[in-house]
Design a protein around this nucleic acid. Structure first.
Lengths: 251, 251
DNA sequence: TGCGAGGGTTGATCTGGGTCAAGGTGCCGC
DNA sequence: GCGGCACCTTGACCCAGATCAACCCTCGCA
């Protein structure tokens, strides 16, 4: 299970101008938004912008944890492996996600880009400096970590006690709540389009199931007219509330 | 599944003297140790000492999160419930454990004392004041939260991908590493005595198994001479390394 | 225009751990 | 000392989801 690095997996974007944070579309969704507009140049000076190609692993579990990351575009999967290759996806990191909170000396998980991903990279030292300059950033990180913890506990409940049907329903609801897809979400049974940048295999490894069970369960939901599957990367939630009831174990 | 509160479940200890933190045995294991000895009176002023009887639930999932807690003695189980009563124990909080990091307005889990438990209780407002007075405390909390996150990810791997045998082995190893039991832990196959304040049912709910599977698997380990079970609350690890290999999926 | 590879689906069968059931074991109060 | 209760163990059987296997679909490329 050795690292397979390919040619030009990471591209360090060269534009180190001080406006990079000011114009960053992820700012509103990210820890950076606690930093005052006037101070954004200091933030920009500490960050290195990096592009990652789909399929490339930019964090390797066990490697020395030299950097922290902030995802500004795209989605990555975070995962842990057992020696024989069994995989557990612990989460999906989208725009605004802060990576590397594990304080220990080495990364506790690997991260692989699912789509073209852009990240802001900070060295440990630079981040330490930022935290000293901006106490609000430290508070924000604690808040983020606490919320992560709540999500992790919810996932433990899912992995330890929910049925395959409940797991898939929970996953769909969580994905639907992810981004308030523009307008039109006032009604009860409004159709919602869910984007899935990951494969069935990633979903299976996230939910503690096999790819076949994921596929079968989604087909079942479709047969029950709970969802539509226009293509592999998209699912339309036809009956949000019914699926939510399944997710919470109320059915 | 409604809350069953009994008579005098919580006892607020009256000694509000300023030495309570100075003489606290849990200080060395807890977030408090980042606070200078000279400032301990300020900490003591913010805290209320509470005793909890075994079996009493002192945090109820969903209740407004008005307090933060620090366990100073005993062990509590933390758990989440599904509407039909399925339970997932998300962790065991022993001496030094900081509880309530979930920043949201209501608790994300319940907490129930397994043994007589002593806790320091802080109101949200008081803790906020402490964090403003002692920035080191905030840093420490971030560190604690980050480590919790690593543990949670490890538990997701266990719940999603490990066999019953691997789960029990992981649990025993984690428990053995918990407190460096005094001396005598230099050798490789040194017997280790593990204390288990929780029932088989709690272990099952922690590992995503049933009580029967926990019992059977432990009996199997005993038959294989990996462990001894002198009584229900104690297990002796006869072959630490062999059990560790099972835990990591290397067997 | 065909073909190969990487997903995804579906069916048949198997099995690890769940469920159901019947004791066993300690411990506490009387 | 003994009855009752809470917890634990063990056995027999079952089933949700894993495994094994066949096939499909789409897309890039020669």
């Amino acid at each position: 299970m050795t690292a397979m690095t390919r040619a030009r997996p990471l591209v360090i974007d060269s534009h180190r101008d001080s406006n990079v944070c000011l114009t960053c579309g992820a700012r509103a969704f990210s820890v950076c938004h606690v930093i005052d507009t006037a101070d954004l140049d200091k933030l920009a000076a500490a960050a290195v912008s990096v592009s990652v190609q789909p399929g490339h692993t930019f964090i390797q579990e066990g490697d020395p944890a030299e950097h922290f990351f902030n995802v500004t575009a795209g989605t990555a999967k975070l995962y842990k492996l057992l020696p024989d290759g069994r995989r557990q996806v612990t989460g999906f990191a989208g725009m605004g996600y802060f990576l590397g909170l594990a304080v220990s000396s080495s990364y506790a998980f690997s991260a692989e880009a699912l789509e073209p991903v852009k990240i802001c990279r900070f060295s440990r030292a630079k981040l330490r400096g930022l935290l000293d300059d901006f106490p609000a950033l430290e508070k924000k990180l604690l808040e983020v970590a606490s919320n992560e913890l709540v999500v992790a506990q919810e996932q433990m409940l899912l992995l330890g006690r929910k049925t395959a049907r409940e797991r898939l329903a929970s996953f769909l609801i969580a994905r639907a709540n992810l981004v308030p897809h523009c307008p039109g979400r006032g009604g009860v049974n409004v159709a919602e389009r869910i984007h899935l940048p990951m494969t069935r295999s990633d979903i299976a490894d996230y939910l503690g199931l096999t790819i076949e069970t994921v596929s079968r369960t989604l087909s079942k939901f479709r047969a029950e007219k709970l969802i539509e599957i226009p293509n592999n990367a998209e699912i339309v939630l036809l009956k949000h509330d019914a699926v939510e009831d399944i997710a919470t174990g109320m059915v």
